[in-house]
């Protein structure tokens, strides 16, 4: 579903991604872990072209998307993204947040867009918050609306960029539950997270990144219980205490 080949990205002098490759099959959940500054977020942003890669290929469903002939807007409709800070549109209600991509980007008629939006809000358990503005919702509720907004466009895959890092501890569970349900339903997912419990229980594979390269990759048990590389051992040891 998603193939990344030898990806490089520079920010000025800073070489953030140094030849990253990865493969996510249809229906698979890949969790990316690693210390901050290792390029995880940049990698995720390169997949939906919020950041333009400097070298290498991003291939989604057989199409090389980092190609001048491909419109980035089209790519972003294929791949949903959930941000660390939710990024809900502050001037729109929860329902309008989920609807706007359907009416303005996909140009669906309003009644159909509203039907889909209400369905997606219901799926994340927020049917009763349709008319609330983001500022009136808890962090966990905002993040669930953000997931509904991405799902409404019926993406082929979902990218999660540290979706629970900005949440108070009591709200982390509800967001992870929604994500777990999604993975069980067979959504293709790439998740950058520090939630090791989620990585352990939900991920099909875990990928450890450091300093812009993939250090090690494997099933959750392999990475967490039998890491091969020293850097992985050190990181996992620190995280699992």
């Amino acid at each position: 579903m998603i193939t990344v080949r030898n990806l490089h990205k520079w920010f000025g002098e800073l070489h953030v991604l140094k030849g990253v490759s990865l493969e996510v099959k249809k229906g698979e959940a890949l969790v990316i872990i690693g210390p901050s500054g290792s390029g995880k977020s940049t990698l995720l942003r390169c997949i939906n072209l919020l950041v333009q890669p400097d070298e290498g290929d991003v291939i989604i469903d057989g199409v090389k998307v980092n190609d001048p002939k491909i419109r980035p807007e089209w790519v972003r409709q294929q791949v949903g993204m959930v941000f660390q800070s939710f990024n809900l549109f502050t001037h729109l209600t929860a329902l309008q947040n989920v609807m706007i991509g359907l009416t303005k980007v996909k140009r669906l008629p309003r009644p159909e867009a509203e039907r889909i939006a209400r369905f997606e809000l219901d799926r994340v358990g927020l049917a009763d918050k349709a008319d609330a503005y983001p500022a009136q919702l808890s962090g966990g509720q905002q993040q669930r609306v953000a997931i509904a907004r991405a799902l409404a466009l019926n993406p082929k895959a979902m990218l999660f960029d540290e979706p629970t890092s900005a949440l108070d501890p009591e709200y982390i569970r509800e967001v992870l539950d929604v994500m777990t349900k999604l993975a069980e339903e067979g959504m293709t997912m790439v998740v950058v997270t520090h939630e090791m419990g989620f990585a352990h229980n939900v991920a099909d594979r875990v990928l450890f990144m450091a300093e812009g390269v993939v250090v090690e990759e494997g099933a959750p048990e392999e990475i967490f219980e039998r890491p091969q590389k020293d850097r992985t051992k050190a990181f996992v040891g620190k995280i699992l205490g």
């Binding site: 980035p72 807007e73 949903g80 993204m81 941000f83 990024n87 549109f89 991509g101 980007v105 991405a150």
Partner: peptide
């Protein structure tokens, strides 16, 4: 806020939208 612009991009809006 810049994160609003980023969210709009992420759901496939063109700059004009």
């Amino acid at each position: 806020n810049q994160n609003q612009i980023e969210a709009a991009k992420a759901i496939g809006m063109r700059p004009r939208q």
